[in-house]
Each structure stands twice: as structure tokens, then as C-alpha cells.
Design a protein around this nucleic acid. Structure first.
Lengths: 149, 149, 149, 149
DNA sequence: TTTT
DNA sequence: TTTT
């Protein structure tokens, strides 16, 4: 079974970062993807979707370091749904994209008017999957040993 | 901006089909994707996500023809969110995958105990994107004309 | 059966554009994707893959208009392989990504030293799939008619 | 930069398995993806692409265990190109999909006439990414601790 | 070289 | 609500 989401879009705000009691770091942020289309009167319309994204651990650290309001990112992950009850006991459902990987495609676009600019913009900074380093090893092995095929 | 979802999973029920006043056909169905993981006591756990899917027009017709409870499909599309208000005026949000393409990977597996079996199972039946036929023309042209490169 | 390729990378040169005798337009270009990894001595290495891409018709026109050496694009398409014979009669195989969709993620990065700058940079310009406009209609219908669910 | 390939198709033969001197296991196999289209005379044509796939380490072990001629799999990975020289010193290029993940969508369909059937068919067996188990931990943490949002 |  |  496969469950994959790919987004390229911009953050609507800086990520919210939390550290759980266990020391695990979590980051949450919203990503906007926009699409243009012509309506029936021939006018171009733009429709924006805001996606709630959650990332954990290393990705959360990297989100804290590299992502800001306006950052354009590539992100992939999976689509998850959680059920819960509101204060009136009504069943509610929340959908989030749990990120498995992201990469900054450029820095934030618009000015950051809160004066908080003391961070590395880090365009194209890697926030790789865990297995990337192993991939590097594979590549090494490919280069060093006679390939058996 | 990119917004893509890829699912491989099974339908929890037959698609619900409706035709709008305009004659446009819509189909809705749920797709389950499951993932296995070991919990902290070393036991294998399975976690299932149920995704709400909507398809329009030709895809809705093909959903009506080819999809049934239990069908395993590959589907891709985009992630959409709609806001609405419940009867108490509270803001609510609904998330759906709007399908752009699907393909049946096998027919439903178990017996259909309601006796309603008068349809083609059509595993691997194509429910192609609109531009597939043009793709075919492209291929033809590639075959027929001297490639300019 | 599914065959999909997704690339985010930069063009190594302006697209080569040709028009076939039939009037069909074709564009070819190379897209670089780079990946960083640590080698066994702990040094960061970068490995770049160059992918041959072909796009047809509307996409070729849009490639001509919007893509230049250095453009960063998102592209998806399918992986195709062709067999042919070289002048010595040896069998050869060529692999190309046939693009189905692309989007410019930013303009070209480095300076264009040939003085040829008389084109719109068109960051984020749409080079949509054929069915996008229908998608727009769907959205309209969703907005205008009572949803049957 | 992003470089991803997604295939759903069938193996043309059993995987070739090798173990390098370093003890690293490698598996190679071909995956067919087919597409149907109408030619200009209105006839349905089928076009098949054969993709060369390589998987390493754990995935190679799982390929050896679970994949056979005829197996239908979902696979994702990246597109890689290697340059080499043929015996006449001519430059040649080989393209392979380096798999990062695969899943068997069904077992091989037809009988295995060589009598070699002493393996688990394992449809839907997991051949997960390295980070899956961590994902499980994340899920646990989500369930156990108060979510900070 | 798969499969329907 | 699917499936193994």
C-alpha cells in the first residue's frame, strides 16, 4: 500500500517548534500551493490550498534552522488523518501531511518585518532522508568494486 | 507550485455516484492504505489511513464501471481542503483527494455476497488521463517522422 | 502499470527546439539533479545526474518561451527507452524522460553572457497539463452546484 | 534537487543477485510498464517499456526473497546514468533506476515450471525504507504524549 | 523478458 | 469501511 504526498509551495509562517517530554522535536507549518485556472467568464482565477505539515526529529531541527515564513520548499511525506472530539463531544477529523523529506528551493521571498533575520537562508540546504548517507556508501561501493553485472 | 498525492490501496465500499444538474458525473469513495511497524514491545502493529477520494466526469464514469468495494487501485491526484460551517456555525474543514488518474491493480478479492456480480471486473483496465490519447499521437509521430535530433 | 519520473533541477543549456514536417513542435533539454553525500573519508561529495528530457506540442512551445540555460524547473513525465543501431550496426539504447508537465521554479540563476536577454523570465509560469482547464471547470461546478454528498 | 522514479509493473525474469567482496548484496532486474493507446487507424496498440532496476543491501535481500519473474511490484527510486567505454573505446551510457523502496503487489501469476517453488510468495510483503521503524516510534510518541499543538 |  |  502506498501513501505519498508531494508538495512544492511556500510556508505561510515560521514553523512552530516544540520539544516533547521525551526530547523528541516536532515542527508544524502550513504550505500553500496555488493553481491558476480560467473561470467561465474567461478570467484567470487563482486557487490556493493550505496544507498542514508536521515533521519530526531531524527534520524538525532542520525546519527550525532553515524554514521561515515565505520559504519555498519541496516536501514529500504521507497523508494522515486523526480523529478527535471537540468540546461538545462531536467527532472531528484532522488531516496532516507527515513529512519524510524536504528541501528548501529558495529562501523566504518577502521581507521579515519582525527584525529577526539572524539565520542562514540556506537555499538548497539538504534535509535528507535517513538512508541518504547509506546511499552515499552504495555509490562508493559502486565506484570501488568491480560491479558484478 | 506542486500538489500531488499518490495512493495504492483498497476501496472500503462501492463508489457513490451522483450526476449533477449540469450532467456532470461525480464519484466518491474511500481508499485504505495500511502500514506496518513494530511498536516498542516489538509487536507488529498495523495502522490504516482512510482517504476520501473524489473523481469527476470520465473518471467518475470509469469508477462506476470498474471500481467496487475491495478493489485495489493506484490513484494519483491532488490534495484539497474545503471550509464549511456545521449547524452550530462552527468552522469545519474537509480534506479530499481529487483524483486525476486511477488504475485498477486487481479486482475485488473476496466474494460479493449480494449477488450483484453483473459487471466486468476489469483488472488493469485503463482510466487514463485526458491527454493520453494525444500521447499516443506523439508516439506515432515519433515513429513516423525523422526525429529532428 | 505506472511509469512516472519527477525531477526538480536546472537546465544545462537552452532547449533545442524543432518543428516536424507535420507542424508538431518538439523541445529537448538536459536537466541536472545533484545530490550530496559524505564519502568514507568524511568529505562531502556532490554527484550530478544529467537527464535528457523531451517535450511535445504545447509543452514544447512553453519550453521555447520560458526555459533557458540555468532555469530551475519541476518536471514530471515518464521514462522511455528507444533502441537503435549505431553506424557499426551495434545495438544502442537511449533513455529519455518524456515530459507531461513542467513548471519554472525560478528564472535562470547565472548571467547569460551572450546578450540574449529579450525574453520574459516567467518564474512560476504555468505549463499545465491539458486537463487543467477542465479541472477549473470542475472547481466551478463544485462551487456553483449543491454538492450531492 | 529532486530525482524520483515511480514504477508499477512486472518483472521480466527472476532478479540476478550478487554479493560484492565487501559483503554488500546487489540485485538487478527488469520491470515492464505497458501503456495502451489508439493509433491513427483507431486500433489499440500497446507499448511496453523495460526499465533496468538495481537495489542494494536490505532491498537486495528482500528482492531475492520475494521477487520472481512475473511479480508485480510498486517501486520508487532515482534515475541514474553511468558512462563507460565499449571495447572500441566509444562512449556509452547506461541508465538504471536505483530502487529506494519496493512492495510486491501480487505474487507471480503464472506457474513456475522449473520446479523451484520453495519460497514464500509473500504478496504485499513489506520491503520498507530504513526510516520506517523510526516512523513507528513517531507514531507511538504521537499516541502517548500530549501533542504540543 | 512480464502481464492481460 | 478494505485487505493479508
Amino acid at each position: 500500500m502506498i501513501n505519498k504526498v508531494t508538495l512544492v509551495g511556500r510556508l505561510g509562517a515560521d514553523p512552530e517548534i516544540r520539544t516533547l517530554g521525551s526530547g523528541v522535536m516536532v515542527a508544524k507549518f502550513s504550505v500553500a500551493t496555488s493553481e491558476s485556472y480560467k473561470d467561465r467568464s474567461g478570467q484567470w482565477q487563482e486557487e490556493t490550498q493550505w496544507h498542514d505539515v508536521v515533521v519530526w526529529r531531524n527534520l524538525a531541527e532542520r525546519a527550525q534552522t532553515y524554514l521561515r515564513k515565505g520559504s519555498m520548499i519541496y516536501l514529500d511525506g504521507k497523508l494522515t488523518h486523526r480523529k478527535w472530539q471537540d468540546k461538545d463531544g462531536n467527532p472531528r477529523r484532522t488531516t496532516e501531511v507527515v513529512g519524510a523529506f524536504f528541501r528548501v528551493l529558495d529562501g523566504k521571498r518577502d521581507g521579515n518585518d519582525d527584525g529577526n533575520d539572524d539565520y542562514a537562508a540556506a537555499p538548497e540546504s539538504p534535509a535528507e532522508r535517513t538512508h541518504t548517507e547509506r546511499s552515499g556508501q552504495d555509490r562508493q561501493l559502486e565506484a570501488e568494486e568491480d560491479l558484478p553485472f
